Computed example of a mutant assay.
Amino acid sequence: MRDALWKDSPLFMGTTKFEKAAGINNILVSGGAGFIASWLVRHLAIQYPHYNVICFDAMDYCASINNIGYVLDNCTNFKFVKGDVTKTVEVTAVLKEYAIDTIIHMAALSHVDRSFGGQSSEFTAVNAYGTHVLLECARAANVSRFIHMSTDEVYGEVNHDDVALLESAILAPTNPYAASKAAADMLANAYYKSYKMPIIIVRCNNVYGPHQFPEKIIPKFICLLDNGGKCFVHGDGKNTRRYLYAGDAVDALDTVLHFGDVGQIYNIGTTDELSNLNLCKMLLQKLGVEEKDYNKWIEFTGDRPFNDQRYAIDASRLSSLGWVQKMEFEYGIQITIDWYQKFGSAWWGDLSDILTAFPVGHLHVNGVHNI
């Protein structure tokens, strides 16, 4: 059965393990069956048997029961609850039933290209309004800790190659996805200021690794190439992004959970920066394509309505808590390639629309297939 694929997959999680923190007993992770959040719930449930971990997820297209299969079957301190962060009744019920004292809010619509389409208002509904609902329910439940997962995209474009932004930088989002996340950040900060809620905000750069739905650039390119397709590159391909392995992201979140200061913002980032074009070439090289043949596997497409040239954040504040990046990009990308070559689209079922119908850069007018 497809939903038992997790039994054949390596078990991926973080590496950190700390002493039990006061006030943490029952942790709710919203969006816990998605990519980064599923790495986190596996990590928390396995590393901390004295914590109860509740995965609260609406199970949209980029979530998978396989992502949480191991902990469902093997961890008595783990529970899955299907629910929607935009529904007050559902959120209130799960917080009450499991006496939640700690929330790690990771539920979000996150694919930038889709946010430019005809259904872009869904990003506002889930990312901004959903966060507001969760904050209000958490306030009523008097939780002791609320960690809000954000993104480096809220800062907007970084124009200079030698600049990495601190947490004090102004928010200047340039696409609907980033704007919805910035709105969520503002709401979280307002609840900290107005109600003295124990809120921490984290802002992460691009995360990659096994279990990511193949709409983001790394898994999409791997799946396309592995299925004999081309890499469709936005514009001239010179836009750069920084990449963080999912295990390092989990270690960062675990560190913030145990040592982060309430009211603080922490950037989670690396200096592993590549252009989209160079990333494509790296994947081609690792898949055994000779350099002289790269042009056969790369096709340049129309760009986004606006495409930030560069994102870069400074993670010094997080490092001061003891977090360090452990996964080198060259090794992490090979682990990722190996996993997708073995599991590929089988993890999510038929991905023909994603991999062939609407290449990256081709925006569909109704927003349904904005890959």
Results as ranks from 00 to 15, higher is better:
Met1Arg: 12
Arg2Gly: 08
Ala4Arg: 14
Leu5Ser: 10
Pro10His: 08
Leu11Cys: 04
Phe12Thr: 02
Met13Tyr: 10
Glu19Val: 01
Lys20Val: 07
Leu28Trp: 01
Gly34Arg: 08
Phe35Arg: 07
Ala37Asp: 13
Arg42Ala: 07
Gln47Asp: 05
Tyr48Gln: 07
Val53Pro: 04
Asp60Thr: 14
Ala63Trp: 02
Ile65Phe: 15
Asn66Glu: 02
Asn67Leu: 07
Asp73Cys: 11
Gly83Ile: 13
Thr88Glu: 15
Val94Asp: 05
Lys96Val: 03
Lys96Ala: 10
Arg114Gln: 15
Ala125Ser: 06
Ala128Arg: 08
Val133Trp: 00
Val133Ala: 02
Leu135Lys: 01
Asn142His: 09
Val143Phe: 07
Val154Asp: 07
Val154Met: 07
Glu167Asn: 05
Thr174His: 09
Asn189Lys: 10
Tyr191Cys: 04
Tyr192Trp: 11
Lys193Thr: 12
Ser194Arg: 15
Tyr195His: 14
Val202Pro: 04
Arg203Thr: 05
Asn205Asp: 09
Gln212Phe: 10
Ile217Gln: 03
Ile218Lys: 04
Pro219Cys: 12
Lys220His: 15
His234Asn: 14
Arg241Lys: 13
Ala249Gly: 10
Asp251Cys: 09
Ala252Leu: 09
Leu253Ile: 15
His258Ile: 10
Phe259Lys: 15
Gly260Leu: 01
Gly260Ala: 03
Glu273Cys: 13
Asn278Trp: 11
Glu290Ile: 11
Glu290Arg: 13
Glu291Met: 05
Lys292Trp: 00
Tyr294Ser: 02
Thr301Ser: 13
Asp303Val: 03
Arg310Val: 04
Tyr311Lys: 00
Lys326Trp: 00
Glu328Leu: 14
Phe329Ala: 01
Tyr331Gln: 15
Gly332Trp: 03
Ile337Gln: 02
Ile337Asn: 06
Asp338Ile: 02
Phe343Val: 12
Gly344Glu: 11
Trp347Gly: 04
Trp348Gln: 00
Ser352Tyr: 07
Leu355Thr: 06
Ala357Asn: 15
Leu363Ser: 11
His364Met: 12
Asn366Pro: 05
Asn370Asp: 14
